[in-house]
């Protein structure tokens, strides 16, 4: 095992590599989810804990709607930035059309009063897809879950063909982070940066 320092630009777990990996569907497809979303009246929630792919899936759905010519509008709230943008309700009312899709990432961060105001601002028939850690805001469109196999598949899609981590170690990392893929991949980033893994490259990273 090598313990040599590895520069960030050679780290296969760097953000730029992870962003190229699309949402990996396990028991459904993008088309099936969109069909179900529309059957639900185009109001639904992607539910799951942090690091379980909710936002990645939401972005995949938004991209498909945009490809179909639908205009999308994003509201993003997080634990680090839990406040709704100033004037958001007025903007929603004035700048969006009934046929647009509203995407709200991180609904659980706002108060029930703000949620009530948000719902009242949506136009009749306007599509809205939210992400949340807890169910009960909108009907659940999809429960985002992860497993060790998913983490293994993500690693397999990174620009390395022979990253020398055994499956048991991947499973251990996934368990340690309770299924949070983001934290698992950060952990792998740190391990690689510290030279814990020997890696044979399948395609040249920046030299």
């Amino acid at each position: 095992m090598s313990h040599a320092f590895q520069p960030a630009r050679n780290n296969p777990f760097a953000t730029e590599h992870l962003l190229r990996i699309p949402y990996l569907f396990q028991n459904s497809s993008l088309d099936e989810l969109i069909e179900r979303f529309e059957q639900m009246g185009s109001r639904g929630a992607l539910v799951g804990p942090e690091g379980h792919g909710k936002t990645t899936l939401q972005e995949a759905i938004a991209a498909e709607y945009e490809r179909r010519g639908v205009k999308t509008h994003w509201i993003r709230v997080s634990r680090d930035c839990p406040h709704l943008p100033k004037g958001i309700f007025e903007q929603l009312a004035e700048l969006t059309a009934p046929e647009d899709l509203i995407l709200f990432d991180g609904v659980e961060q706002i108060s029930r009063l703000a949620w009530w105001r948000f719902r009242r601002t949506l136009k009749p028939g306007q599509a809205c897809l939210i992400t949340t850690h807890t169910p009960g805001w909108f009907p659940t469109l999809h429960d985002c879950v992860t497993d060790c196999l998913l983490l293994r598949e993500i690693i397999a899609r990174l620009p390395v063909s022979d990253i020398q981590i055994d499956s048991a170690e991947i499973d251990e990392i996934w368990l340690k982070h309770q299924g949070d893929l983001r934290q698992s991949l950060f952990d792998l980033y740190d391990r690689f940066a510290s030279g814990e893994f020997l890696v044979a490259r399948s395609s040249p990273l920046s030299e």
């Binding site: 960030a8 630009r9 780290n11 777990f13 760097a14 953000t15 730029e16 962003l19 950060f186 980033y189 740190d190 940066a193 920046s206």
Partner: peptide, 13 residues
Amino acid sequence: LRLVWNTVGKGDR
């Protein structure tokens, strides 16, 4: 043709 710099690593780019 663009001359650019970018960061690579852990977190935002």
